[in-house]
């Protein structure tokens, strides 16, 4: 188990190094930073001095090493657009994105798993058929369209929920939360549904097909033959066996939720990192873009690590390599 974690950590470090290299390459291959800084009439010897001071003419490995060391200390340079430190810009906006993503993921799980279980247990009921049909719409409609539809219905026609922004926030140290104020909670409903709807339908369909498959297995038949109650068979024995694939997909999708919050944040003017990223693209603000890239890479690596460890919790068959007779 510990050897496994160490192995995964080494892998994660390698992946992060690769991501960092791509992100580092953006600086080098998209324009010359010195040309961005100096004016047209800057003397040539000053330019040379500046190049020396910034170290841009150092060999590539040296520059990359410097980039990695700085990145690990949270130094990602200054934004070309606002001249603020990029690390702080991201940190300011990260809570908004993380809260939105988390609420969206919880919404998707809390609704998707029970719906999937129901549809798997009673595949022929009219409710299951309806859920399957509606979920097709959820899968095929693009996110921005769902967002705009929701805004139109709940903000424009009914006027009960705000259509943009985060509402009031409360600060705890560096973390600002909107989950503790009424306006903040109201504001998160629409974007969270928009962001979570696709995941919800995906999880529902996954749980349904896994349930249907598990219910056909011998151990479910044997559990019934032992006279266990329906509840014990369905939720104790069947659902737990569907969890491994569900955890995998949910984990990957959580990464996707954070990464692709860009669209939802734009539709709802949600002040998160996604919106920041889009604004930076418009201004070719490379430090922000490359930092965003590193951050998303980091999020995926961390989630994958957690998912791999959750497998061990769920499935005992993975735990016991090298042990002969069980027991804890």
């Amino acid at each position: 188990m510990i050897a496994f974690i160490v192995r995964r950590l080494v892998q994660a470090a390698l992946v992060m190094l690769a991501v960092a290299f791509v992100s580092f390459a953006m600086f080098n291959f998209i324009g010359d930073p010195v040309a961005n800084i100096v004016g047209q009439d800057t003397p040539a010897d000053q330019i040379v001095e500046l190049r020396k001071a910034l170290g841009v003419d150092d060999p590539m490995p040296v520059r990359f090493g410097r980039f990695v060391v700085n990145a690990m200390q949270g130094k990602f340079g200054l934004s070309y657009r606002t001249t603020e430190p990029v690390g702080r810009m991201i940190a300011d906006r990260l809570p908004a994105t993380l809260e939105l993503s988390l609420v969206a993921a919880i919404f998707a799980l809390a609704a998707g798993i029970p719906m999937g279980v129901f549809a798997g247990l009673y595949p022929n009921s009219w409710l299951s058929r309806m859920m399957m049909t509606v979920s097709l719409i959820g899968i095929s409609l693009p996110t921005f369209l769902i967002g705009i539809l929701l805004i139109y219905i709940f903000a424009v026609i009914l006027g009960i929920l705000p259509s943009f922004g985060r509402g009031e926030t409360i600060k705890f140290g560096f973390w600002s939360t909107g989950l503790l104020t009424v306006s903040g909670l109201k504001a998160i409903i629409l974007p969270a549904i928009t962001l979570g709807l696709f995941q919800l339908t995906l999880i529902m369909r996954l749980v349904r097909s896994e349930m249907m498959e598990v219910l056909r297995t011998d151990y479910i038949k044997f559990a019934r033959a032992r006279g266990l109650s329906n509840r014990a068979v369905h939720f104790g024995h069947a659902l737990k066996n569907t969890l491994v694939p569900v955890i995998t997909i949910t984990g990957l999708q959580l990464g996707a939720i954070i990464a692709f919050a860009i669209i939802t944040e734009t539709v709802f003017s949600w002040p998160g990192v996604g919106l920041l990223f889009l604004q930076s693209v418009v201004y070719a603000d490379i430090p922000v873009m490359s930092t965003y890239l590193v951050m998303i890479g980091f999020v995926f690596v961390v989630i994958n690590l957690i998912v791999d460890m959750l497998y061990f919790v769920v499935d005992p068959r993975l735990r016991t390599q090298g042990r002969t007779s069980g027991g804890k």
Binding site: D218, F222, R224, R226, G227, K240, V314, D315, P316
Partner: peptide, 25 residues
């Protein structure tokens, strides 16, 4: 019927490798 299964009539199936739920002791 569920109260009869297990209590009055027990069952043994063909494949012991798949009759037990792999996730429980």
């Amino acid at each position: 019927m569920r109260k009869i299964r297990g209590r009055q009539i027990g069952a043994i199936f063909q494949d012991p490798l798949t009759s037990l739920n792999p996730l429980y002791k």
